[in-house]
Design a protein around this nucleic acid. Structure first.
Lengths: 241, 241
DNA sequence: CAGTGGTCTAGACCACCAG
DNA sequence: TGGTGGTCTAGACCACTGA
């Protein structure tokens, strides 16, 4: 139930999960059918089904018609990375945050832009570059292209104080994105901005964000390797649809 | 339903999700109560409830008793990183994989071990180092510590051909882990093994894996930055419990 | 073709909490 | 304190698929 901290459904789920995690049921093992679990727990089928569904979503169980339900075999590990808004991250760390815009220009989409994913029709874009500071130390270099077709209000923004990422988070909240995370040696210009040597490893995060209105933004963030890393809570197997 | 590709529950979920993603319902907006949705769709309450529950799990909706359900406000972005088994990754890329063990030693847990997370009682551990090759090119350096208390069978393994990670995946399949991903300049020894310059940026993945039996393994993988990066499918907001 | 999961119903009781 | 979500029931019909 909602209050008693334990629920029949939760108990069933916990029982099944425990037997899987403890190894009693190895990957590939066929778990009891819903009908058997209904009999075992003396509950309705919907309760059992919801418990199993939760474990399917958690990636612990795979279901097949006719054949039954089986303990899943782990494939890849999926790490859930939290990629926070930089000002919020700084606030959480108790450090002073500042954004400095380096350049801003409205122009047509350039074929040389990082159109890694076919950005569609070459409409007008806003190209913004800036520097993120933490306690007045350069923390990240940002190069961003904004699709004015998907976020027309961006044309009115100066992005002199608020970084475009934070503004976008408010304006176009529900998006999907792909990330590529890599280690790079910074370009000379980037190295100078970050006040590090070009031989210093930097963490580079490329993000390609889309909304229902099309692609919204493509951004590259370069962090000095010694000042930033990504931590990931984690879960086994894949998540789900 | 299961076959007709569209289900009443799915349709309800899609309707709600669309209105959220399109911005009709902005973050913080109160969505109709379950009773209202039941009336609107002429279905039972459980159908509506399951649809909303799915959106709660997706992070799009927050529920409160009495107050109702609201469109969630995005916090951090959570990127779902897929961290595959290296041999499987190579197979997917169509490249030949090979593992070369560099060292293996059974010893007590050393206080200088990367016990970043308090590895608990100092029992015996297996320390393994090795090199991963892709098409005979060094691809990653691995330094691993295995907890023999949690995986006693590891003591019988030589890890001369199969990397310990793959073995563990079979033996202790259901684990949880934390990852830290960072960009580093490789140690001289590591650089030599990878055949890269110490000034070359490398991607470093630290993984701390636990099972119900305690911590299982702590591993550090160092990849040459130009040969590996992590890509992430993505979802907004956090997932859930 | 028969067993399994996928979905749905029309109720019900209860805990929670904002007004 | 009443409205809301949280949970559960005892059925039901159906699609899929492995034997």
């Amino acid at each position: 139930m909602t209050a008693p901290t334990t629920t029949l459904g939760r108990r069933i789920r916990a029982d099944l999960e425990h037997r899987i995690r403890i190894g009693t049921w190895a990957p590939g093992h066929k778990i009891p059918t819903e009908a058997e679990l209904v009999a075992a727990y003396g509950c309705s089928r919907m309760t059992v089904s919801k418990a199993i569904t939760a474990l399917v979503q958690a990636g612990l169980i795979e279901r097949n018609k006719k054949a039954g339900s089986f303990v899943a075999r782990p494939h890849v590990q999926t790490a859930v990375l939290e990629i926070p808004d930089l000002p919020a991250l700084m606030a959480a760390r108790g450090e002073a945050y500042r954004f400095q815009r380096l350049s801003l220009i409205t122009r047509p989409l350039d074929p040389t832009d990082p159109s890694e994913a076919g950005l569609g029709p070459p409409g007008p874009v806003l190209a913004v570059s800036g520097l993120h500071f933490s306690d007045e130390e350069p923390f990240a270099v940002e190069h961003r292209i904004l699709n004015l077709a998907a976020a027309p209000d961006a044309a009115d923004q100066a992005f002199e104080v608020e970084p475009p990422g934070s503004w976008l988070l408010r304006q176009v909240p529900w998006t999907k994105a792909r990330h590529r995370i890599s280690a790079v040696n910074p370009e000379p210009v980037t190295a100078r901005l970050l006040k590090v040597s070009p031989s210093r490893a930097c963490l580079q995060v490329d993000r390609h964000t889309v909304s229902l209105a099309g692609w919204v933004t493509v951004v590259r963030l370069v962090f000095p390797g010694h000042r930033y890393d990504l931590t990931a809570a984690f879960e086994p197997a894949r998540s789900n649809d």
